[in-house]
Design a protein around this nucleic acid. Structure first.
Length: 468
RNA sequence: GUCCCCAUCGUCUAGAGGCCUAGGACACCACCCUUUCAAGGUGGCGACACGGGUUCGAAUCCCGUUGGGGACGCCA
């Protein structure tokens, strides 16, 4: 049996962290088993679905590198099929028309809440009522008959055996009064139609699984395996909601987080493989299994993402990263970049990357390589350069350096140290003014590395410190 | 209110009855390295929610309590 999984987001907003992880798990599971992973947009609620949301979700998934098999399925396009199934259920007496008005339903709900009685909100009013009693002029909904007694057990691949009394399952609506299918019907029909073998989704659907279980049975269909993975909570421990600051994956992309970081982070949230922390996608596919998914919810932790990101930043391909950095710099800078920007970036990127946690930080750090003289100085740099003898030392040093035959780190190092020695100075007393003049900042990669990356001409040019 | 789920360092987790005086990672602190800032290295702080059982033996199994979360829509 080929494994078929799916990710079924509703297009009412961006792809948030929780959804991204559900998608990742479903995808990983399918890839691990050499099966299929299908993307289905659950747009049965046309009022709340938007094209923008659909685009954002697909964009987010592709950024994460989660590729689906076949075309994207739009649930709304299966509406006829859903309706047919519903009619069949009605014809077989497994579903019935319910003429309750929204007001009546609200009343029932409030009554139950007020009295604290156990049981369901809907009192099965129309379950056995004769259709001839139907009030005129009211479009009914279709409800499915749930068993009234006994209990239902589900062997969830993550949560284990979960049992629920059938009398707590109410006859839920499968077709709205306007003739459109509800989510509950649509998921079951569509999951069956794509041959889904494993339904992997958020824990918030666990309760629905019981209802869907009976819907599968009513249709005479095989019930897929369920795996309800725990929700991701915010730092405060409550469910990640848009209201609680849950952000779309695009937000993290904009922050300068790498997709591989996000994949690794999301993977380790609720799933583990011994003590392994940094796990490549290849390894993840090889190792992933539902049995290692934890049952308790995890909290979102930005520090961990940043830490992982600095790891993947160091692993990133230098020239690709340089291109990306340059791209962002072009879009955001108001100054024109040096012709040598890319070349300098490529040779200096490793020094930059170990000082940054995000691509955005790399961009900030790369300023000293992106532009030619004259430099912009920050306050600290200006302070250093206006210090006693600072400029004098720089000018003397520039003289010495210009005579250097070999422009590499060890020779530069040697020359500068020698200068410091003969003048009775500590290396820092020379290096800091140099740094300020070359980087325009009090903070930079190693000063000799900077000189090599800039090259002899640009270095000597900057050491003239023509404007402060 | 009813139903369902969960419970190991602050956080993510390892742990499937003896390997646990509970391991790793992030964060935090200290030290080392050092031309700045980082990175890196070394070390430190720090948890089995509580109470009962079962067992020769429990973080691991059972029950209860407490705490947390989720679901109760003609939303998905």
């Amino acid at each position: 049996m080929t494994v078929v999984t799916r990710f079924a987001p509703s297009p009412t907003g961006y792809l948030h962290i929780g959804g991204a992880r559900t998608a990742l798990f479903s995808w990983l599971f399918a890839r691990h088993h050499g099966g299929k992973y299908i993307l289905r947009v659950e747009d049965t609620d046309q009022k709340r679905s938007t094209q923008d949301a659909i685009d954002k979700i697909i964009e987010g998934l592709s950024w994460l590198g989660i590729d689906h098999d076949g075309d994207v399925i739009f649930q709304s396009q299966n509406a006829d099929r859903h309706a047919k199934v519903a009619e069949q259920l009605l014809a077989e007496g497994k579903a019935y028309k319910c003429y309750c008005s929204p007001e009546e339903l609200t009343e029932m709900r409030e009554k139950v809440l007020k009295n604290g009685t156990s049981g369901n909100f809907y009192n099965n009013l129309w379950r056995d009522r004769d259709p001839s009693e139907a009030p005129a002029g009211i479009d009914p909904v279709l409800r499915i008959k749930m068993p009234l007694a006994g209990e239902t057990s589900i062997s969830d691949l993550v949560q284990g055996d979960v049992t629920r009394a059938n009398n707590t399952l109410d006859d839920f609506v499968i077709m709205r009064s306007d003739g459109t299918p509800t989510y509950m019907l649509a998921v079951v029909v569509d999951d069956h139609d794509i041959g889904a073998t494993h339904v992997i989704r958020g824990d918030d659907h666990l309760n629905n699984a019981f209802r869907q279980f009976h819907l599968y049975n009513a249709c005479g269909w095989h019930v897929p395996e369920f795996a309800h993975i725990p929700l991701i909570h915010g730092a405060d421990g409550a469910k990640m909601s848009k209201r609680h600051g849950a952000l779309g994956v695009d937000h993290y992309a904009a922050l300068g987080i790498l997709p591989e970081t996000m994949r690794n982070y999301l993977l380790r949230l609720g799933w583990s493989h011994g003590d392994d922390e940094t796990i490549s996608t290849e390894q993840a596919i090889e190792w992933f299994g539902l049995d290692a998914v934890g049952r308790s919810p995890a909290r979102f932790d930005m520090d961990r993402i940043l830490n992982l990101n600095s790891h993947y930043l160091k692993e990133a391909d230098p020239s690709q990263l340089s291109e990306a950095v340059l791209q962002i710099a072009r879009e955001t800078s108001d100054r024109s970049l040096s012709d040598s920007a890319l070349q300098r970036l490529e040779s200096g990127i490793s020094g930059l990357v170990q000082r940054a946690k995000t691509i955005t930080e790399v961009v900030d750090l790369s300023n000293l390589y992106l532009f030619d003289t004259p430099l912009k100085f920050n306050d600290k740099a200006r302070e250093i350069l206006t210090g006693e003898d600072a400029l004098k030392r720089i000018f003397e040093l520039a003289e010495i350096l210009s005579d250097l035959t070999l422009w590499d780190e060890s020779h530069l190092n040697e020359a500068v140290r020698e200068y410091a020695d003969t003048n009775g100075l500590k290396l820092g007393q020379v290096a800091q003014p140099l740094r300020a003049a070359l980087a325009g900042s009090n903070v930079s990669p190693g000063i000799f590395e900077v000189m090599v990356v800039l090259g002899r001409n640009e270095t000597l040019e900057r050491l003239k410190v023509t404007s402060l």
